[in-house]
């Protein structure tokens, strides 16, 4: 009548990598925080919600200054999950953990390449330009009120984007359908990002924060396939047909 107790398998430890937005504060900090606040107001919620890592290589902060910075960001809804490029002594148990970035791995997301590959180069790469861009592919229309946020690369939609919907991409945006909502490309400062669509009826286009609303777009382009790109700080649109 005794039941044999099965030995519990020992807990599994797995190493996983996740994508996070990296923010690198620059002095003076007060201005940088104000800019972040403005960015949140301008481009919606893309900094609020996803995990954020603070790269403190450009600033020299004491433990209490780091704590203050993290608190300031939390107040604005930005959740800091890790800190990098500081000495371990500057952090304590109350602050987010220290992250050590490993060799940069290039990851291709999407139907084509399911395996993650490691880059051959040892040189550290600039944080915003990834060597193999990732793409988010949506094969259904994006409905009004839906918000798609993909800072890691391009967003491609096989269908239309409804009025009142928004797409925010770190890379370029490609809509194989009618773009009726808002499209904001190059959200991480990628000034080379572009926006393409089969038919333009967009409410707003933006690249790296420089935006154009519908009433300022050339009426002659309406209902045509167009591409938009940045020239300096001016957003340019031209027809593709």
């Amino acid at each position: 009548m005794t039941s044999v107790a099965q030995p519990r398998p020992s807990p599994r430890f797995v190493c996983r990598s996740y994508m996070a937005v990296a923010l690198a504060p620059e002095p003076p900090l007060v201005e940088w925080i104000a800019e972040i606040e403005q960015k949140i107001k301008d481009t919606g919620n893309f900094l609020v919600g996803p995990p954020v890592v603070l790269d403190l290589s450009a600033v020299k902060l004491s433990k209490s200054a780091i704590a203050h910075l993290v608190a300031q960001l939390e107040q604005r809804g930005v959740r800091v999950m890790g800190v990098e490029n500081v000495d371990a002594s500057q952090l304590d148990a109350a602050l987010p953990p220290l992250l050590r970035s490993t060799k940069k791995e290039s990851v291709e997301i999407g139907a084509a390449a399911p395996k993650a590959r490691e880059t051959q180069r040892e040189k550290p790469q600039p944080r915003e330009a990834r060597s193999a861009p990732a793409t988010l592919l949506l094969d259904k229309p994006v409905r009004s009120g839906q918000s798609i946020y993909f800072p890691d690369g391009d967003v491609t939609v096989l269908g239309s984007v409804g009025s009142g919907a928004e797409l925010v991409a770190g890379g370029s945006i490609h809509v194989y359908g009618t773009l009726r909502g808002r499209a904001m490309a190059g959200s991480n400062g990628n000034t080379r990002a572009r926006i393409f669509c089969s038919k333009i009826e967009a409410e707003l286009l933006a690249i790296d924060g420089h935006y154009l609303t519908a009433d300022l777009m050339d009426k002659a382009l309406r209902d045509r396939p167009v591409q938009a790109w940045l020239e300096g700080s001016a957003l340019k649109i031209s027809a593709l047909d």
Binding site: S144, G162, G164
Partner: peptide
């Protein structure tokens, strides 16, 4: 039509 688009998104 726009409100219907929204509700379709919510149905999903």
């Amino acid at each position: 039509v726009r409100d219907s688009d929204r509700i379709i998104g919510i149905l999903d």
